[in-house]
Amino acid sequence: MRVEQLVTSGTFSLDGGTWEVDNNVWLLGDDREVLVIDAAHDASAIAAAVGDRRVSAIVCTHAHDDHVNAAPELAALTGAPVLLHPDDEVLWKLAHQSATPGGRLANGQLLRVGGSAAHVLHTPGHAPGAVCLYVPELGVLFSGDTLFKGGPGATGRSYSDFPTIISSISGTLLTLPGETVVHTGHGEDTSIGAEAPQLEDWIRRGH
């Protein structure tokens, strides 16, 4: 089992604004099959990184358009289902008028790949259906936009809520081992241990 990173570039649009963004696309698997985590911007580049491996699923950490805009095309290229937490269907519909996800994510669900399993953690706040994937065997967490190096994901736009994201981080993510490596949706990696001491400061700044 290994983790591979691909950075793709495009735009994020919500609430009437559009911003240029670089997204981390993560591949979790082995030489035979992979999970794709967040199919952002460029389905062809993601398919090239996958190569001849089977894609067991395309997992959406949430449905902001920069994280799902390449998901239907990648699904068509690979035959893999797109998995999304149902609480984020409202955001999915903003990005895709006709395409629909192929399956649902739920808290506590296990996604098996390459002889291992990723644990789905529902972590609302940045988006109502935001999830993280925890792989204890590798000591890694894929946090989407819930947790970054230096703080929680943004909560200033529609369908987001600051107290909710703080609850998700403190009650779920910060209970993981401190050495857990956090692979984020944008930017650099961090760790649970590096972020945990800053919780009270985040709360003060958020208020």
Rank of each mutant, 00 (worst) to 15 (best):
N69M: 08
L121C: 02
G108A: 11
N69R: 15
R204C: 11
S9F: 13
G193I: 07
L83P: 06
T78K: 06
K93D: 11
S143T: 11
V68E: 07
G29K: 07
V25P: 09
V120A: 05
A95L: 06
V55I: 10
P72C: 03
T61S: 12
D52Y: 00
L105Q: 02
T8L: 08
S160D: 06
E179Q: 13
A130I: 09
R112G: 10
R157G: 05
C132F: 07
I166D: 05
V135L: 14
G193E: 05
E137Q: 14
C132H: 04
S168W: 02
W202E: 01
A80G: 10
D66S: 13
G206M: 07
P177I: 04
A45C: 10
R53D: 09
P124V: 01
A106F: 07
G156H: 08
G79V: 09
R53W: 03
K149Y: 14
G125R: 06
A194F: 10
L77T: 03
D65N: 15
H67K: 05
V21L: 14
N23G: 08
A63P: 09
G114Q: 07
E20Y: 03
S168F: 02
T18E: 15
A118Y: 04
D145Y: 08
H85Q: 05
G115N: 08
T146P: 01
T155F: 09
S9Q: 15
P101I: 00
G187P: 04
G153P: 04
G51H: 03
D88N: 12
H62V: 01
H207Q: 15
W26T: 12
G129D: 04
F148Y: 15
L133F: 09
E200D: 12
I203R: 15
C60T: 04
G29T: 02
C60F: 00
G153D: 05
T78C: 06
Q198S: 12
E188N: 14
V90L: 12
C60G: 07
T78D: 11
A76Y: 09
G125N: 09
M1P: 14
A71C: 09
L35Q: 06
D88F: 03
S9A: 15
P101T: 00
L6Q: 10
P124E: 02
V113C: 15
D88S: 14
I192E: 03
I192K: 01
E33F: 05
H119C: 08
T164C: 13
L27D: 06
E200N: 08
I192N: 00
A49C: 08
V181G: 01
T190I: 06
I203L: 11
T100R: 15
A127T: 15
A43G: 06
L111Y: 02
N23H: 12
T190Q: 00
G151M: 10
P124T: 01
V113K: 04
T164D: 07
H183S: 07
T11D: 11
T175Y: 00
G108L: 09
L110H: 13
S168A: 13
S170P: 01
V135F: 10
H62W: 00
V131S: 05
A40I: 04
Y134C: 00
A70P: 00
A49T: 12
K149F: 14
H85R: 05
E4L: 13
